[in-house]
Each structure stands twice: as structure tokens, then as C-alpha cells.
């Protein structure tokens, strides 16, 4: 009875329907996410008691000025950007052929198997995968064993290790949107291109790539932003490498300097905002 009464009451009131539907998620996004983030960023302008590490509400721009003027943060920002870009490029280079094969070449049965294969690593914990890479990269690991007969050796723990590990971790997030993008390219366009005398390469560059560009950009957002904030992989396979994420982590965990950590977090947030703005101009956000 009650539920019937509620639905009769709500039926003509469209706005109320919408309001009751959206209140909870909007509150969640607004309060829990944006307000919490803003509260964190505000602490960048506070100070910290040097012995006890307790945050004190005394306004200062010292932390932010320090982050934007000291050489350490410039070096680490450039290194992090470089890693994120490299990881994104590697992932796209691997994902495009794989996604093309899945969408256009493979039989339906094989395609389903490949989708499962691509998504399967996501079922394993992030930590398990990173520790697996630690074992792989180790000097008595699989990479060393496979490369040593050819005079090679493992890159060990460091920049290369971080790039390899992150590229592996984010690959499914890049393959899936690009696969969806290829799937949306009608086969008859490829045939038409061939009928008009275009070779494979020409078809790829003039017909396929313009159509899947938004999908590639969508995939790059995942690889780029996830790499930009990562600190756990860096701690485990990065050797002595520092990234923006580890600087934030060390300032919270080791230095007990939350204001400085908040000030550092302005850097990746700024980079991501610029990146998203650039992406928005390409129109790729609509295909996410």
C-alpha cells in the first residue's frame, strides 16, 4: 500500500523524481570528493609544528612557493611527466595492433577469448602484479635468465623497471577503449578504401586512424593519469627513483609534513587539468 501511495504521489512530479534520484550521488561527489579534495588543498597554505608534525592553521604561501621554486620538485616533475608520457606511448603502440586484430581480424570465438585474456589481469591485485615484476626484474629473475644468453641483462630496479611495470599495469585500460573504437569502424569503409585503390597503410592512416583517434586519446587518459599519481610501483621496482607520488607519500608518511604534501599535489592536479583541457578540444571526451 505504502509503495503504491508513494508512486502515485511521485508520478506527476518529475522534478521531485529527479531530485530524489540524484541527491545521494551528487552529495557523494560534492561532499565526499570535492570538499575533501578542497580541504586537502587548503592545508597547502597551513604550517606544521616542526617537532610534532601537527598541522597548525597559520596561513603561509611558503610551501607552495617552495614547490614551485626548488630544483628538486622541477626534476621530479619532469621525470614523472617523462615516465607518464613514455608509458602512454608504449601502451598505445602495443594496444593499437592488438585492438585492431581483436576487432577486425579475429573470429568471434577468438575475439571473446582475447577480451577475457586482456581483462584477466585486472582480476589480480595490483600489488601481486607489481611484486611479480619485482621478481621478474631481479638479477636472478626471468628477464636476466632469458637475456643473458644473448649478452643482455635485466634493467634491474629503476626508471626502466618503473616504465615497464606501469606499461603492463595500465595496458588493459588502453586496449579496451581502442578495441571499442575499432569495433565502431564499419568494415565496408575498409572495403570502400580498398576499392578506391588504397593500400593497407594508406587505409590505416587516412580512414581508420581519424576514426579511432578519440578512442586512442580516451585510452591515453587512463595510462597517463594513472602513471602520474603512482607511487607504489615506484617504491617496489623503482630502486632509488623518486616520482611525484613518492614525494607526496614521503611527506605524509616520513616527513609528517601534510602541508608540503598538499602543495606538491598541486603539480599533478595542474598537469591533469591541462591534459584534460587539451583532450576536450579534440572532442575525445565524448567517446569515453
Amino acid at each position: 500500500m505504502t509503495s503504491h501511495r508513494v508512486s502515485t504521489y511521485l508520478a506527476p512530479r518529475r522534478r521531485l523524481q529527479l531530485a530524489s534520484l540524484l541527491t545521494a550521488p551528487v552529495l557523494w561527489l560534492g561532499l565526499v570528493y570535492i570538499v575533501a579534495l578542497a580541504a586537502l588543498l587548503v592545508t597547502a597554505f597551513w604550517t606544521v609544528d616542526e617537532l610534532t608534525g601537527q598541522v597548525q592553521i597559520e596561513w603561509t604561501t611558503e610551501n607552495v612557493v617552495e614547490v614551485f621554486t626548488e630544483a628538486l620538485y622541477r626534476t621530479v616533475t619532469l621525470r614523472t611527466l617523462g615516465i607518464a608520457l613514455l608509458v602512454t606511448l608504449i601502451d598505445i603502440a602495443v594496444a593499437v595492433p592488438v585492438a585492431f586484430f581483436m576487432a577486425k581480424v579475429a573470429s568471434t570465438r577468438l575475439r571473446h577469448l582475447l577480451v577475457i585474456a586482456v581483462l584477466a589481469p585486472l582480476w589480480a591485485s595490483y600489488l601481486v602484479k607489481v611484486y611479480a615484476w619485482r621478481a621478474l626484474l631481479s638479477s636472478d629473475g626471468l628477464i636476466e635468465w632469458a637475456a643473458s644468453p644473448f649478452g643482455g641483462s635485466t634493467p634491474g630496479y629503476g626508471l626502466v623497471g618503473v616504465v615497464l611495470t606501469l606499461s603492463y599495469l595500465w595496458l588493459p585500460y588502453v586496449i579496451m577503449p581502442i578495441y571499442a573504437g575499432f569495433d565502431r569502424v564499419p568494415d565496408r569503409l575498409l572495403e570502400a578504401s580498398a576499392d578506391l585503390g588504397a593500400q593497407g597503410w594508406r587505409t590505416l592512416v587516412s580512414v581508420v586512424l581519424p576514426m579511432i583517434r578519440p578512442a586512442i586519446i580516451a585510452g591515453s587518459i587512463f595510462a597517463f593519469s594513472l602513471s602520474l599519481g603512482d607511487y607504489i610501483s615506484t617504491k617496489i621496482v623503482g630502486g632509488a627513483t623518486q616520482m611525484l607520488g613518492t614525494l607526496v607519500y614521503d611527506n605524509v608518511g616520513a616527513a609528517n609534513n601534510l602541508p608540503l604534501a598538499a602543495a606538491i599535489s598541486f603539480i599533478p592536479i595542474g598537469i591533469i587539468l591541462v591534459y584534460l583541457a587539451a583532450v576536450r578540444r579534440t572532442g575525445a571526451l565524448r567517446s569515453l
Binding site: 616542526e50 617537532l51 628538486l72 626534476t75 632509488a240 623518486q242 614521503d250 611527506n251 616527513a255 609534513n257
Partner: peptide
């Protein structure tokens, strides 16, 4: 040099 300077220097050492 107090400990807060030590922590800053430590991050610079790691580069």
C-alpha cells in the same frame, strides 16, 4: 640543523 631540515635534505639526496 633540525629534523625537518633533515627530511627535506633526504628528499634532495634521493633527487
Amino acid at each position: 640543523v633540525d629534523y625537518s631540515e633533515w627530511t627535506k635534505a633526504w628528499q634532495e639526496i634521493k633527487g
